[in-house]
């Protein structure tokens, strides 16, 4: 009898400890890691009283010599299928602002210029991702929770349509969603071809499978392929439009930023891409400390 009482008591103790512990764990505690996901690299965005035009001259403008750049390693995207295939090893990034606009320049090696779309033909592309909040909660494994991000997605095929490179061919190759006669190899009545305002899509995403164009497309850009190298300039007004789905870039502040590159010739498209880790983007004010801008 005494033994039974002891056993029942022990069982009661264990169950009580479990219930109390679970209550406290579930409802009382919450700890954020203070050192979580701190980017190792910093990309300084100096203030320069200049602009660059969206042209080949702009891409090679000597001003880029005065802007600090970072060469960032790229890794295949493997969080969601289809996975990347390590098609581009690195991207060199530089950025500056003139108080009104911010300019990014992305450069990466690519032996082929792919600006066409078709069946199993994919375009080269790159993107800049800016989280929508100042201190984004770090990504978490498996479930891919994100705070939401504003993504500037430049695509060579789009660029060709906007800026006229080989435009006729691009038009005819472009897939449509209005009507498709199944026995024709491609769309024969391209009647819903909306005008494209920019080579860069201004997008927003809140987790996997939620990529959506923003109502206001405010990012411009243009890319040039020369001697096996893409150079792409992207620019947007520094001041945000106030919408909740646009990333703010306050002067004097730091934000997280990440970059992605697609090599169409190697089958990159959609989630199949190469990505950088987070980089700290430091937007310097006009009166930047000595040595903060330039090389």
């Amino acid at each position: 009898m005494r033994r039974t009482i002891i056993i029942v008591g022990l069982i009661g103790l264990v169950v009580s400890l479990f219930l109390v512990g679970s209550y406290y764990a579930l409802f009382r505690y919450r700890t954020f890691p203070p050192a979580a996901d701190q980017p190792m690299e910093t990309l300084d965005v100096p203030y320069l009283e200049r602009s660059v035009e969206l042209s080949e001259r702009g891409a090679e403008d000597p001003i880029w010599q005065r802007v600090p750049s970072k060469t960032l390693p790229l890794a295949p995207q493997v969080t969601a299928i289809p996975w990347g295939r390590a098609s581009v090893p690195e991207v060199t990034v530089a950025a500056f602002h003139n108080g009104e606009r911010i300019f990014f320049r992305l450069q990466w090696r690519d032996p082929t210029e792919d600006h066409q779309l078709g069946r199993d033909v994919f375009s080269d592309a790159c993107a800049v991702m800016l989280p929508l909040v100042e201190h984004p909660q770090p990504n978490t494994i498996m479930m891919g929770f994100l705070e939401g991000a504003n993504i500037w997605a430049w695509k060579a095929a789009r660029d060709a349509q906007v800026w006229g490179g080989d435009s006729a061919r691009v038009q005819s190759e472009r897939p449509y969603a209005d009507y498709y006669y199944p026995f024709e190899p491609r769309e024969v009545f391209p009647i819903t071809n909306e005008p494209i305002p920019s080579a860069v899509e201004d997008l927003v995403a809140r987790g996997v499978g939620t990529l959506t164009p923003r109502a206001h497309q405010r990012v411009q850009g243009r890319g040039f392929w020369k001697k096996g190298m893409w150079t792409v300039i992207l620019t947007r007004a520094l001041a945000a439009d106030g919408a909740a789905d646009e990333a703010a870039l306050p002067i004097g502040g730091t934000r997280a930023v990440a970059f992605a590159v697609w090599d169409g010739a190697k089958g990159d498209r959609g989630a199949r891409k190469s990505i950088t880790g987070w980089v700290r983007l430091r937007v310097w004010p006009a009166e930047a400390p000595a040595g903060a801008s330039g090389r």
């Binding site: 764990a25 409802f27 700890t31 954020f32 990504n139 929770f145």
Partner: peptide, 9 residues
């Protein structure tokens, strides 16, 4: 860790 801490940390 509570309910809302990021899992990977």
């Amino acid at each position: 860790g509570g309910l809302t801490s990021p899992g990977n940390y």
